[in-house]
Design a binder for these strands. Structure first.
Lengths: 135, 135
DNA sequence: CTAATTGCAAAAGCTTTGCAGCGCA
DNA sequence: TGCGCTGCAAAGCTTTTGCAATTAG
């Protein structure tokens, strides 16, 4: 059994064709940040008849299961990426749309300290840099 | 002439009742982060007949003029706050919805460095910590 | 006077939901 | 076989837009 199937099982989800295909699309995405629409189009292009509603449902289930992360960058639509063990933040180029991932221990630690100074602990955080190529 | 009117003029916007009222609502908001709907409701409660569409248009114009900032926290709708000289980031309590502002020079500087290391310069950035009260 | 602004209602865009039928276990 | 899953279409939400009437300068 492929690793996709195992991941699905572990998440308590039935191993169905749409789920396998969507997971595999996310795994093989070159820039691994895709909107629901992106996933849907990819399915269509591959001749796989999966409804857009199912794409949304499956992505939401994957998110609940911790398989994918949902990001709300600016622009009205959410983007999804495969969850991996290593946390990272994002840098989005305002000219090209390119998304670069990074992780900075200094920032991570300061965040924890700041929350603590206010009597809180961090549940989650979102850091996105909107950048442009340096002249 | 009140300072609101001056700000509007400076922004190249005609001084109209809806604009004055919306600006004043933002200025006197206790937790100064409001959604378009919040602003609209406040207007209604005050008996001011301003269309929701106008609220959106005015907020968008204010944003373009640099008078307000638009944030896309999680939850599907944008929130607006009066722009002030001092930049800051946000900490949102997941239990109470409370929004705390903070600014950390260490994080700011690291962001700049990270962008530079990748050959970019920062146009804008968004950092939001989702927190819960510490036990 | 004239261009900017507003209100209303309709439309748009993303996402969710109801329901009948299909498919995995 | 049975419950979960899917597809379709319809509905929901936030936000935007078209247009005729109104208003600021």
């Amino acid at each position: 059994m492929s690793s996709e199937n195992l991941e699905l099982k572990k998440a308590g989800l039935k191993v169905t064709l749409p789920r396998i295909k969507i997971l595999s699309i996310l795994e093989s995405a070159e820039n691994h940040h895709m909107s629901a629409e992106d996933v849907y189009k990819t399915l269509m292009e591959a001749g796989d008849d999966v409804g857009l509603a199912t794409v949304y449902r499956v992505l939401t289930q994957f998110e609940a299961a911790g398989l994918v992360l949902r990001h709300n960058f600016e622009g009205g639509h959410a983007v999804f990426e495969l969850a991996s063990d290593d946390h990272h933040d994002h840098m989005v180029c305002t000219q090209t749309g390119q998304v670069i991932e990074f992780c900075d221990p200094v920032i991570e630690e300061r965040q924890r300290q700041i929350a603590e100074e206010h009597g809180f602990e961090i549940v989650d955080h979102s850091l996105t840099l909107y950048v442009k190529p340096k002249k």
